[in-house]
Amino acid sequence: MPFSAAVVTFPGSNCDRDMAVALESVTGRAPLRLWHGDAELPGGLDLIALPGGFSYGDYLRSGAMAARSPILKGVASAANAGVPVLGVCNGFQVLTESGLLPGALMRNKNMHFICRDMPLRVENAASRFTTGYAAGQEITIPVAHHDGNFFADDETLDRLEGDGRVAFRYLDNSNGSRRDIAGILSPAGNVLGMMPHPERAVDAAHGGTDGRILFESILNALAPA
């Protein structure tokens, strides 16, 4: 069975094409492109990707409007049924705003838009998104965000850590995220939200390929070698 992925585009998404190119490069098949107004998702998806960008112009709060758009109902039911969902940057903000992941992403602590390669540590190498990495491996993936400052209360943070749901941590926490958190998993492990952009590190010409391993992990989780 060929890998069937879908990339959702919201008005103001700007990393949707990069995400589609990365997925096609790794899976050999161009993903479906879905529009925010689509009320229903096609069945049989192996991955739904929510890309980066500035959906709805970041009106109200980053990701707030997209989280209430028609397609999110379908994404939420798919996620609850176990379909893997990857939210990157604005996609992560959409996942927290929709309640599929806990916490919130606030304005960076230093108020700057941060756009650079970011060293990360892989905290959970057992999730379907991260099996290609070694636990504790240090990788480099670019970030580009203004609102990446992850906040959750202590109880939520303790639970995330206790359940192994912190996927990635910043080695150099420049946005103020609590406990250096860069990416988290849902309780069932099939939803990953992360601020760094793995789709921007899949080709040597990007300056690194550490992000490619994430997409390969998703592919391998579906069809173990």
Binding site: L60, A64, R68, A104, M106, F151, A152
Partner: peptide, 9 residues
Amino acid sequence: RKLLANTVI
């Protein structure tokens, strides 16, 4: 609760 405020923060 559903839209105007994010009650997490």
